[in-house]
Amino acid sequence: MHTCAECEFEYDLKLAPRVSAIVRRDADAYAEALRDDVNLLRRRSDPAVWSPLEYACHLRDVLLVMRERVLAARRTVTPTAAPMGRAERIDHDGYAHQRPDDVARQLRDAAMLFGGVLDRLGDQDWDRTLHYHYPEPAVRSLRWVAVHAAHESRHHLLDIERQLAD
């Protein structure tokens, strides 16, 4: 079982059926954090680190992209998950310039949409696969995709909390 060295999240695939509830709960925590001072939300504590607002936008997009990947794996045998262009989205979508209250609402919606797709997976669906490119190219199950989404959610919430505590 893989454990994230930075946030200590464990990739336990048995967690997959509970990810829907996890990302919805985490979306509420993000929304609460996004109520902070807009200047703090837009500030990068270090040029190499995203701002809290940028992390929230990233998670919103991750959940929407993951939803599409799950749907693709349900309709196609082992599709390829195209990279989401995470670094490019910061500028292309203007993450730092978005309104925190809009992002909070959108993040909750993304969590509901992603969670809804996960909630509809049957026992046999969790083992469907797709070609995934992160962290290295591999064939991944939908269990892994769900658990990876939970890791993204938890990890970036910690990133936000650290910056807002500074």
Results as ranks from 00 to 15, higher is better:
residue 5 A to H: 14
residue 5 A to T: 15
residue 5 A to D: 15
residue 5 A to S: 14
residue 6 E to Q: 15
residue 8 E to C: 02
residue 9 F to D: 05
residue 9 F to C: 11
residue 10 E to M: 08
residue 10 E to F: 01
residue 10 E to H: 11
residue 10 E to P: 00
residue 10 E to A: 14
residue 10 E to S: 15
residue 10 E to L: 07
residue 11 Y to L: 13
residue 12 D to L: 03
residue 13 L to I: 11
residue 13 L to G: 04
residue 13 L to A: 05
residue 14 K to A: 15
residue 14 K to M: 09
residue 14 K to S: 13
residue 16 A to F: 11
residue 16 A to M: 11
residue 16 A to C: 06
residue 16 A to P: 04
residue 16 A to Y: 07
residue 18 R to N: 12
residue 18 R to H: 13
residue 18 R to P: 01
residue 18 R to Q: 13
residue 18 R to V: 05
residue 18 R to M: 11
residue 19 V to W: 03
residue 19 V to R: 01
residue 19 V to Q: 02
residue 19 V to N: 00
residue 20 S to M: 01
residue 21 A to I: 00
residue 21 A to P: 00
residue 22 I to N: 05
residue 22 I to Q: 12
residue 22 I to D: 10
residue 22 I to F: 13
residue 23 V to L: 11
residue 23 V to D: 10
residue 23 V to W: 06
residue 25 R to I: 04
residue 25 R to D: 12
residue 25 R to Y: 10
residue 26 D to N: 13
residue 26 D to V: 14
residue 27 A to M: 08
residue 27 A to W: 12
residue 27 A to Q: 09
residue 27 A to P: 06
residue 28 D to M: 09
residue 28 D to H: 13
residue 29 A to P: 01
residue 30 Y to R: 11
residue 31 A to C: 04
residue 31 A to D: 04
residue 31 A to N: 06
residue 31 A to L: 02
residue 32 E to Y: 06
residue 32 E to W: 08
residue 32 E to G: 06
residue 32 E to N: 09
residue 33 A to P: 00
residue 33 A to L: 07
residue 35 R to D: 11
residue 35 R to V: 05
residue 36 D to K: 07
residue 36 D to P: 01
residue 37 D to F: 06
residue 37 D to R: 10
residue 38 V to Y: 07
residue 38 V to H: 09
residue 38 V to C: 04
residue 39 N to T: 11
residue 40 L to Y: 06
residue 40 L to N: 09
residue 40 L to A: 14
residue 41 L to Q: 02
residue 41 L to P: 01
residue 42 R to Y: 02
residue 44 R to E: 04
residue 44 R to C: 05
residue 44 R to I: 01
residue 44 R to W: 02
residue 44 R to Q: 14
residue 44 R to A: 02
residue 44 R to K: 12
residue 45 S to V: 15
residue 45 S to F: 06
residue 45 S to C: 07
residue 46 D to M: 05
residue 46 D to R: 11
residue 47 P to A: 13
residue 47 P to F: 10
residue 48 A to F: 04
residue 48 A to I: 07
residue 48 A to P: 02
residue 48 A to C: 04
residue 48 A to M: 10
residue 49 V to H: 10
residue 49 V to L: 14
residue 50 W to T: 10
residue 50 W to V: 09
residue 51 S to C: 09
residue 52 P to T: 03
residue 53 L to H: 08
residue 54 E to L: 02
residue 54 E to Y: 03
residue 54 E to G: 03
residue 55 Y to M: 12
residue 56 A to K: 04
residue 56 A to L: 05
residue 56 A to R: 05
residue 57 C to I: 13
residue 58 H to D: 10
residue 60 R to F: 03
residue 61 D to Q: 12
residue 63 L to K: 03
residue 63 L to Y: 14
residue 63 L to Q: 12
residue 64 L to M: 11
residue 64 L to Q: 13
residue 65 V to T: 11
residue 65 V to W: 07
residue 66 M to C: 07
residue 66 M to T: 08
residue 67 R to S: 00
residue 67 R to D: 01
residue 68 E to K: 07
residue 68 E to I: 00
residue 68 E to Q: 10
residue 68 E to P: 00
residue 68 E to C: 02
residue 68 E to V: 00
residue 70 V to G: 01
residue 70 V to W: 02
residue 70 V to M: 02
residue 71 L to I: 10
residue 71 L to G: 06
residue 72 A to V: 06
residue 73 A to G: 05
residue 73 A to L: 03
residue 73 A to N: 04
residue 73 A to Y: 02
